[in-house]
C-alpha cells in the first residue's frame, strides 16, 4: 500500500471527526503489519472492491464508542443510546471510508464499499485478509482511533 493512501485516510478521519463530532484528531503513530487485525475491543470492518480491494478495519475502546454515540444522539436516554452504539460507530467508519474513497477513486474509477460490520470483544473470529497493512493511530481527548488499512490496487480498474 502506498504511503499517500494512508494520508488520505488520515485527512478523511480528521475531517469526518471534526465535522460530524466536533472532535479533534491528531496522528500518533504509523506502522506496517501483515493483516488488518484490530487491537482495540470495538471494531468496524469495511470491505472494498473495484479499482482497489481489501479491508479497512477501525478500532477503539468502548468508552470512545460511547462518547461518539453521545455526541451523535445527545438527547437520547442512556438506555436508548446503548442500542445505537454499533450504528453510530459503523456510520462513522462508513463516512471516513467513503470520504477516503472519493480521493482514492479519482475521476474515473469506482470503489465499492460493503456496509460496515461492527464487532465487539477481544476474541474476534473474523477472517481478516492477509494483505500488507498500514496501521494508523490517531488520538483525541476522548480516546484513540486505530485504522488498519489493508488495500491493494486491482490489476484491472472497474
Amino acid at each position: 500500500m502506498k504511503a499517500e493512501h494512508a494520508n488520505v485516510f488520515i485527512r478523511s478521519a480528521v475531517e469526518v471527526f471534526r465535522k460530524e463530532l466536533g472532535i479533534s484528531l491528531s496522528r500518533e503513530s504509523l506502522k506496517r503489519k501483515e493483516t488488518p487485525v484490530p487491537s482495540l475491543p470495538v471494531s468496524i470492518v469495511l470491505g472494498i472492491t473495484g479499482a482497489m480491494r481489501g479491508q479497512v478495519v477501525y478500532s477503539m475502546d468502548h468508552s470512545f464508542a460511547d462518547e461518539i454515540t453521545h455526541v451523535m444522539v445527545p438527547n437520547k436516554l442512556p438506555s436508548e443510546r446503548r442500542k445505537l452504539v454499533n450504528s453510530a460507530v459503523g456510520e462513522i467508519g462508513n463516512m471516513v471510508t467513503g470520504q477516503a474513497s472519493i480521493a482514492l477513486a479519482g475521476q474515473d474509477n469506482i470503489l465499492h464499499l460493503t456496509p460496515p460490520a461492527v464487532f465487539t470483544g477481544k476474541d474476534l473470529t473474523v477472517d481478516f485478509l492477509q494483505v500488507p497493512t498500514v496501521c494508523l493511530r490517531l488520538l483525541s481527548e476522548m480516546g484513540m482511533l486505530e485504522i488498519n488499512i489493508g488495500l491493494i490496487e486491482s490489476e484491472v480498474s472497474s
Partner: peptide
Amino acid sequence: SAVGQKRL
C-alpha cells in the same frame, strides 16, 4: 451517501 465518488 458517504460514497460521493465523482463517477458514482
